[in-house]
Computed example of a mutant assay.
Amino acid sequence: MNYTYYIADVFTKTVFNGAQVAVFPEAEGLSAQQMSLIAKELNLTETVFLSNKEGQENYFRMQIFSPLGEIDFAGHPIIAAAYVLAACNKLSLQDTYTPVVFAQNTGDIQTSITSSNGQPSFIQFTRTVSPVVDYYTPPESELASFLGIDEAHIDSKKYCTRLVSCGMPYLIVPVYYYQTVRDAVFNLSAWSQSLAPQTAAQEILLVSPKTPYQDSDFAARLVGPNIGVHDDPPVGSAIPSLAAYLCSFDHMQKGTYTFSVQRGDEKMRRSVLNLEMDHKGEDSLTVRVGGEAVKVAEGTMVIPEA
């Protein structure tokens, strides 16, 4: 059978920037094994497969695969899927806001599409998480060693390193300077000799409150033992943990906060993720993540029947 798919660049409005996500908007009939093979064939960070759930309008089953296997939750696919559905007339846009629900393996994700002149202009999804914050982290000398950065550049005044999990643990390391985020080089040998592997986190989120771009408040980058030394992977799945991290500090007063996080740079597929969080000092935290997208490719894949 023939299946149409689209490739969208996510958290950007400029082609060849942001994160590449492939979307199959009508994936009914594909098995999980076929989806896995398709994801390996396309070899993108994430490939999304949608099917209309129980015939309900604007309600879709979403399955996400990387070349390595299925993913239970990811943020970039939500933005990509909503954009493709709207831009390719797979759902009817309302005047201003159009609600859509994606059923991922972790549960239903409430999403809204903002449209202008009949085209999607901004997509935002809402997620309520129950974060776990651990204050036990490796000493700064070890952090600096396996991150390949100057120990003096690690922020221990306004922020400090913490382990945060909203389902997947991230070791979040704050640094003073944007360039430190960009220049970090992960050292697997130093990592193996440190206390870090005992934290269960396999990904480190470097964060700086300084960025040279006017449209972002934080710069972020993921590194780790399973990430290529020179790679700069999407950070969407880590954003709820970043929100929980910020809320874990006493100087963050209760309220609703809005800010933007940038990943990459002008030479490496820059993304801008918009985040809202409702800090109420409770065990649960509601975050809203939004951004833009742009279609860059459309194709047809011929899939043999299972």
Rank of each mutant, 00 (worst) to 15 (best):
Y3R: 09
Y3N: 04
Y6R: 04
Y6I: 06
T12R: 02
N17Y: 10
Q20L: 13
V21F: 08
V23P: 03
F24Y: 15
A27F: 07
Q34I: 06
K40Y: 05
E41Q: 14
V48M: 01
Y59C: 14
Y59Q: 13
F60I: 04
R61K: 11
Q63P: 00
Q63K: 11
I64S: 00
F65S: 02
F65M: 05
I71E: 02
A74C: 13
H76D: 07
A82N: 06
L85D: 00
A87S: 13
N89C: 01
L91Q: 10
S92C: 03
D95Q: 15
V101I: 15
F102I: 03
F102Q: 00
Q104W: 01
G107H: 03
D108Y: 01
Q110P: 03
G118T: 09
I123T: 04
F125M: 05
R127L: 12
T128Q: 13
D134C: 13
Y136D: 12
P138M: 10
S141N: 12
E151S: 11
I154R: 08
T161C: 11
T161G: 03
R162F: 08
P169C: 06
L171Q: 07
Y176M: 03
R182G: 00
D183I: 08
F186E: 00
N187I: 05
S189F: 11
S189G: 10
A190F: 06
S194V: 07
A196T: 09
L206I: 12
P209C: 10
D215H: 09
F218W: 07
F218M: 07
G228N: 04
P234H: 12
V235I: 15
V235K: 05
P240N: 06
S241A: 14
S241G: 04
A244R: 06
A244S: 13
L246D: 02
C247F: 04
C247K: 08
D250G: 01
D250T: 12
H251I: 08
G264H: 05
G264I: 05
D265A: 03
E266K: 15
K267C: 07
R269A: 09
S271T: 14
L275T: 09
H279E: 09
E282D: 14
T286R: 13
T286G: 00
R288A: 11
G290N: 10
K295I: 15
A297D: 00
V302F: 14
